[in-house]
């Protein structure tokens, strides 16, 4: 298997690259080549390790991830059926299309002030903002995927006497599922970004954003901020990895055409 050997080589080179980056950054900082307000790599890594036993940080992660999960689940629960509807009835899709194109470019962050006034409760505000931002990849991927289902397969089912419901369950949804999962995966990382942004926005919000605001002015503020950002990156990678792995497992039959539709 030459594949696994080249994979081994790539992992090896990647590790060397990371180590070299750390060494160069640390060396440059020690030699005084980098402005002293930028923390050293060793400091950041120490704080990254310390964060793992910091209860305030762990609570913040739990709070952010709870809101992230609730927002994403609600989005999927509403937008996958909506996408199936729009993908099935092309007349409805054509009519609503301009509205979708009009709403999509409004940055969800811009809606935070409005949501704060309307909803008052910070939990609801965060969920609403997450839902608005993560709606589009799920909705649009579902819509396109259902529309592009092989008409021959559908007609075959119909000629065997299956009803619309059975066709939806046995043909349309299975063949659209990989693309829907891709949409959910994209939304999952957007939802994380938006969750933290909302929490950064103001007093009263919990989670990682609030934690960042809290630690930035304290002792060792900057290295802790970078360490927190690194863990947020790790969370992002893990979330993405879980979705990719789930897609590979669930849709092994499909891997040949698992492209991204957004």
């Amino acid at each position: 298997m030459s594949d696994s050997r080249s994979l081994g080589r790539r992992v090896m080179r990647g590790a060397i690259g990371v180590a070299a980056f750390f060494a160069v950054a640390e060396g440059a900082a020690r030699a005084g080549l980098i402005d002293s307000s930028v923390p050293r790599v060793s400091e950041v890594l120490t704080h990254a390790a310390l964060l793992l036993v910091d209860p305030a940080f762990l609570t913040a992660v739990a709070e952010t991830m709870t809101r992230w999960a609730v927002g994403l689940l609600l989005t999927v629960a509403v937008m996958v059926p909506a996408g199936v509807l729009l993908g099935t009835f092309s007349a409805v899709e054509r009519a609503l299309r301009p509205l979708i194109e009009l709403f999509r470019p409004i940055p969800s962050i811009a809606l935070i002030p409005l949501a704060i006034l309307l909803l008052a409760d910070t939990f609801l505000v965060e969920i609403a903002i997450i839902m608005y931002a993560s709606t589009w990849p799920v909705l649009i991927n579902t819509m396109y995927a259902v529309r592009e289902v092989d008409p021959l397969a559908r007609e075959t089912m119909r000629s065997f006497g299956f009803g619309s419901g059975a066709i939806l369950l046995r043909v349309s949804l299975p063949s659209a599922a990989p693309f829907i999962l891709t949409g959910i995966r994209i939304s999952a990382s957007i939802a994380l970004i938006v969750a933290i942004s909302t929490e950064l926005f103001g007093p009263g919000f919990p989670g990682l954003g609030a934690y960042l605001t809290f630690v930035q002015s304290g002792a060792d503020g900057i290295p802790i901020v970078i360490a927190t950002a690194m863990w947020a990156g790790v969370i992002g990678l893990v979330v993405n990895g879980v979705f990719v792995a789930a897609g590979r497992r669930l849709f092994r039959w499909h891997h040949a055409r698992g492209g991204e539709a957004v």
Partner: peptide
């Protein structure tokens, strides 16, 4: 391809960091 292998993990990780988390850092700098 060789150079890309060396920096790939750094790039993937950089992309995964939610950019707003670094706002406090840039504010301080």
């Amino acid at each position: 391809a060789r150079l890309a292998d060396y920096v790939d993990p750094l790039v993937q990780f950089g992309r995964a960091i939610p950019p707003p988390t670094l706002l406090p850092l840039f504010l301080a700098l």
